[in-house]
Design a protein around this nucleic acid. Structure first.
Lengths: 178, 178
DNA sequence: ACGATATCGGCACGGTGCGTGTCGATCTAT
DNA sequence: ATAGATCGACACGCACCGTGCCGATATCGT
């Protein structure tokens, strides 16, 4: 059922993602879908849960910059590999007309990503890699935000150049200067 | 005709924005709309042009941080004032399933915003306010990106606290240190 | 083991928006 | 004045939504 959703996303992208299509593909009545999810968006959220985030965690060793770099590269690769990208985009599009969904999306995915990044850089801060005096909450938001912005709203790819540029800024702003 | 679009966005938000609704509201046949625009998205782009960007330019005097701050506050206020917000969101949602539209959206709006910010901070760089050695193109992207991210994908408001936090990071990264 | 109940897939319905076609009425240009 | 273009209006087939109904299958209690 969730698998049917992911298959459809892979084949027809966002656009072929309708409840009727999922029901047909899964060989299931529409009621069965409506019984578990009140709309397409929640189905998509659950489908996303099955392919996103799972293996996305920081290694934890080595310099924080390298750790962030690897992590961002992995995320970027995941977002450009179907079916994750289309499903994610579909949820985000849907969320633009539904503030409640927007909040769920943030809570279940974006906030999680931000939090992991925050945990990682706060650890680096405690380890003396980053300036001790600053509040890093905005830093985590800036890192996530810039990457999502580029992926969602620009034709530019989230490639190594972009990630390195972003990390240059991060380093310039927060790395401890001796 | 574009006015009808903006009126509808103001009343029913994104969701009431259909070609049929616009045609009804404008007292116009659907053909007349299809003659000028090939789909809803392009109509929305043109509608946006009539209310966005117009008065959004930097003052140019004073410290760059204050200039950026005022500009971001103005943009944030514009985005939270109908009908701009709903129309913008509708275009962005639509663009998620249409790469060509995504490129147009970026070219006509986001790239313009980024470019103006880039011009302003490069001027500050030449004036000696910012570190002379860095490439500021990513900085402009980070500034725009972080604000759009917060507005689009989080339940958090783009308020003074967020803007100040962002500018703290910008300053820490690029302000000239004597 | 058997009957009551719940759950399922399949089908049909009214409603709505899409994109196209058709038809008079009105406006424009020569 | 007349021929052509342009307009509003209405209608059509299509797709999807959310709901209701039906008959078959599965599950559970006794």
């Amino acid at each position: 059922m969730l698998e049917a959703t992911l298959e459809l996303a892979e084949e027809s992208g966002y656009g072929g993602l309708t409840i009727e299509a999922v029901a047909r593909r899964a060989g299931v009545g529409k009621h069965t879908i409506y019984r578990r999810w009140s709309n397409i968006a929640e189905l998509l959220l659950d489908a996303l849960s099955h392919v996103w985030i799972s293996d996305l965690d920081y290694r934890g060793d080595g310099p924080v910059r390298e750790d962030l770099r690897e992590q961002f590269l992995r995320s970027s690769h995941a977002l450009s590999t179907p079916p994750i990208g289309p499903v994610y985009r579909a949820v985000i599009a849907e969320a633009q007309s539904d503030p409640a969904l927007r909040e769920q999306l943030h809570e279940r995915f974006l906030a999680t990503v931000e939090q992991r990044t925050l945990d990682r850089i706060e650890r680096a801060q405690r380890a003396g890699e980053l300036n001790a005096e600053v509040d890093l909450r905005f830093a985590a938001e800036v890192l996530s935000g810039t990457l999502y912005y580029r992926w969602l709203l620009t034709p530019r790819p989230v490639d190594e150049e972009a990630i390195d540029g972003l990390l240059d800024m991060f380093t310039a702003a927060y790395a401890r200067r001796d």
